[in-house]
């Protein structure tokens, strides 16, 4: 029964992939190796490309894609829901626990350390975003030419959007995403 197998494979992925979307990648390769009739390892690379270029969490996108290539629309729904189910259950448990123990002083103390650490992790993610969007690190390493490091049009767009966000503080994030897409298409980024 393919749906049951899909359920088990993606439930396992959702349960053990800790730390966000890309953590699901090794599990997908594992599934490709054990079920070559669903999808192949080469297809995983395509799935990643599509998942990164479409909206939505990358892990969810990849599960939908993998499920679809294994068993059509029903497969896509099965794989996606199975991926989400373990974290859904665990978060419900944690949320219930937190509601009960929010007054506990140890829980309170834990958050003293937790918040600045998460801000640091978000900063690291931001640096990663900056690296891929404004700089050509690989072509710089290949050519050793310092000028090749900077993606000038992207840096200009970054500065321009930053000005926009400074003067129009109420502008919705969606506007920025659409502006970015528009400028990207018009100026062939």
């Amino acid at each position: 029964m393919i749906y049951l197998e899909l359920f088990l494979s993606f439930f396992k992925t959702g349960l053990f992939a800790i730390g966000g979307g890309l953590a699901t990648l090794p599990f997908l390769y594992e599934i490709a190796a054990s079920h070559p009739d669903w999808f192949t390892a080469e297809m995983v690379a395509d799935m990643l490309a599509v998942s990164e270029s479409t909206p939505g969490p990358i892990g969810v996108n990849m599960a939908t894609y993998a499920g679809y290539s294994a068993a059509g629309v029903t497969g896509a729904v099965t794989a996606t829901l199975s991926l989400v189910l373990p974290s859904f259950l665990i978060i419900l448990l944690v949320a219930g626990f937190m509601a009960k123990f929010r007054e506990n002083r140890f829980v309170d103390d834990a958050f003293l350390g937790l918040r600045p650490a998460v801000v640091a992790l978000i900063s690291v993610a931001f640096l990663e975003v900056l690296k891929t969007s404004l700089f050509h690190v690989e072509s710089f390493l290949a050519s050793k030419n310092f000028a090749a490091l900077f993606d000038i049009p992207s840096i200009l767009l970054f500065a321009a959007l930053l000005c926009v966000s400074h003067f129009f503080k109420k502008l919705h994030p969606i506007v920025f995403v659409l502006l970015g897409a528009l400028v990207g298409i018009i100026f062939k980024f």
Binding site: F126, V129, L130, T132, S133, L134, S154, L157, F158, L161, L162, S165, F176, V177, L179, G180, A181, L182, V183, G184, I185, F187, F189
Partner: peptide
């Protein structure tokens, strides 16, 4: 372009 917007 979207990646730059997301960075901002």
């Amino acid at each position: 372009g979207i990646r730059v917007a997301v960075a901002v």
